[in-house]
Amino acid sequence: MAKPSKDEIHYLLLKLHSLTGIVPIGAFLVVHLCVNSLRTVGVWPYQLSIDAINNLPFLLVIEITFIYIPLLFHSVMGFYVIHHAKTNVHRYRYPRNGLYTLQRLSGAVVFVFLIYHLGTTVAPKLWEGKHYFEAAPFLIDILNGEFQTWQGLLVYTIGIVSATFHFSNGLWGFCVSWGILIGENAQRNGAIVFAAIGLALTVLGMATVAEFNMNPIPVEATVAR
């Protein structure tokens, strides 16, 4: 392959932005919301899932490679994209134009939310050195507290709704940008399907939040050190 030109790099970066939104970030979001929703089944299976993740070998390397770097890349490119958008939905009030603006807005919101979310969960976990089976009680304790205040509930509600919207609408955008949905009907039907997916993910996320709010059960480490 020849050395890529500036234009080629530009194109590839934007394509990669679009792609990383789906894989791995979007995929992670789906897994994350599904796994967390185990909380609605009971605190025991939920804790087991956290245990499983936190006992993965090279967890940090996996997280950095498959989550943090793509997320950072997606965010930086996202702000580049936002920087080049001159939203005009106040003049041209069309649903798709509204979604265009919301996509950019929700992206920024999710970015801020993630700083908060990681800052209050993963960061203290790493700081305090809570690994393996110690991670679950530590994290569950934090979250139990988080969902008891209205501020916490509000932040997570906004964060989850923004993330699921950004993902499902982004899925549609991906399908159009990559030329998977071309015709007018295909694009409309695709939008309906993705809206349903978005809604399902939102319900999943909010059910988890509700469960945390109503049943803040503290847990012990599954296996003591």
Partner: peptide, 11 residues
Amino acid sequence: GEGGIADCGNA
């Protein structure tokens, strides 16, 4: 390239 199809925001 820059300003090309990938810049479309699908509004």
